[in-house]
Design a protein around this nucleic acid. Sequence first.
DNA 1: GTGAAAGCGCTAACAG
DNA 2: CTGTTAGCGCTTTCAC
Lengths: 344, 344
Amino acid sequence: MAITQQDIANKLGISVATVSRALGGYSDIAKSTQEHVKKTAQEMGYRPNVIARRLQKQQTDTIGFIIPTHGPRFSDPYFTELLTGIGNEAAEQDYDLLVSTRAAGSGEMKIYQRMVSEQRVDGLLIVRTRQDDQRIRYLIKENFPFVAFGRSDTNANYPYLDVDSQSGIYQITQHLIDLGHKKLAYISAPKQLQFAHHRLTGYKQALLANNIPVDTDLIFCGELTESSGYKLGLKILTKYNDVTAIIASNDLMALGTMKATRELGYEIGEDIAITGFDDVPLATHAHPPLTTVRQPIYEIGRQICRMLLQTVNNTPLENDQVLLKPELIIRESSKLSKGGDAYS
Amino acid sequence: MAITQQDIANKLGISVATVSRALGGYSDIAKSTQEHVKKTAQEMGYRPNVIARRLQKQQTDTIGFIIPTHGPRFSDPYFTELLTGIGNEAAEQDYDLLVSTRAAGSGEMKIYQRMVSEQRVDGLLIVRTRQDDQRIRYLIKENFPFVAFGRSDTNANYPYLDVDSQSGIYQITQHLIDLGHKKLAYISAPKQLQFAHHRLTGYKQALLANNIPVDTDLIFCGELTESSGYKLGLKILTKYNDVTAIIASNDLMALGTMKATRELGYEIGEDIAITGFDDVPLATHAHPPLTTVRQPIYEIGRQICRMLLQTVNNTPLENDQVLLKPELIIRESSKLSKGGDAYS
DNA sequence: GTGAAAGCGCTAACAG
DNA sequence: CTGTTAGCGCTTTCAC
């Protein structure tokens, strides 16, 4: 069995209380005892039992992160990077990270309730916020610490960090218009996601600002996966042969759209411009390299984790609603429109 | 504060022990009391405190998974899918999943020690096994339950599941040779990884079986990332212009190599064949679609998790060293060699 | 400075 | 069938 404080106390002929104090680095203890205890603990190979400590302290030093997956072949590189950011920050602050993978919808709330009411974690991280987000409503009702990556239409104040997607898509749309594109199709994210609306708004605003009427027939809704982008790409290009640009709401869909575009015999960047959002590493290595909007995913992971740990530790956040400006990354998947008259 | 069993006991004028038994579904309890207690618990909104239970039972009902990342921009779609498999299986069996993200090497063993000796988890999942794997040596020494995804040269018996990479690469190499390729370059995984050796062996064996001498100049070592594949692709094709096929040890590197190949003006599948390993969803959507070896990643995640949970619960494994046969997936990135004489 | 004692919330012997 | 008691390993008053 593992060595306990009791074992050390017995060996040294002192009380557990003293051992605890010595190890805990309290001030009201003789320097000599402290050193003695520490040395013996070390020699005996003592390691604290975190469960016991948690029960006593009534806190878990653990945060939870529930990943909303979409099916078994869920493999968004975006999430690995986000997870790495969260995990590294948590580790640095000596927190454990509990991860759940759950298909959004299917019994998702059960997991949240379990985390909260069975006191498995001290705080939660929420991602892929939805327009009406019952997770957020629930956590607010329970007064449970959390930080969200993303806003929501929930009528309440809560700490979040978000990327200004609207600005991102506005920039990318403007960029395409500047290149001479006039018929720009748009592939949205599922409409229940909050960012789907911000991005769509960015698209519409850019069109209007350039006196291009918004044609709702050119707005499609995807699932954020490659195959979804692929299917919609085929649909768009076979149905509307005057479309010269397709704006996808994330890189994965853009990659799928590229495949469709090529299969139909179009030259990407020449005949049809395609853009994404996120700037996952694969965007650079795609053929052609993908014009996209960069989100500093790893840093976002670190920051939302940092915000949550501050919240959990009752340190007030200097800024609890952060909006980051994303950066437009222009690559070869968007070039001058063939039929374009940008310089005419 | 949260409702405890004590609260229920007080309200009902019975003892906590009875409450515990009623809730725990023990047999030696009156049906009537049981129902009464359950109903009251429900009404009062009682939820068990898992920490207290863990301390008493001396088990955490939690398993650990330490992801060996390589830097901040770690974004291998492979891992998301694996994690989803592990997470879903753990959830179904009512286990929590503790995830750590740690750069391999940098203080990695500290995390393992922490998990084990501070009793944070009941068992561990190890991935990306290494030829000489100190994690495995450590866990065996500590007699701590674990299951590895991958073999290792460690002289010891331990439960693992692995994919027969050697066979996979053999098949893919043979396939390329059948297409007429004679100069096949190979991009290996980092040599400390155990599978790097199996795969390399598969490559060499296939060459020898076809009387093609192994040219060590054509064997390169990558980092399993797109950019690593890209750099090596450039190097290989500029230095050896008689190479007609490049076999990469994973899909990400193959994708990077594709980019390099195209930049140098070669037609993939026509001038140069390129192959990967894993069959991540992006392999299908690459241009051209990537010939690769499929690993059932999600299912592997589920299965290693299942094996671990059995181990943790002292249920003997019927088969504790599983080797899966991977499947060759032929797509357009490998075609008849231009200079080939397959049918001559 | 140190020890004794209580208690975090739960489960598990052992009586009765 | 149910209550009493003890205890998981630790932290934290409160005395001395």
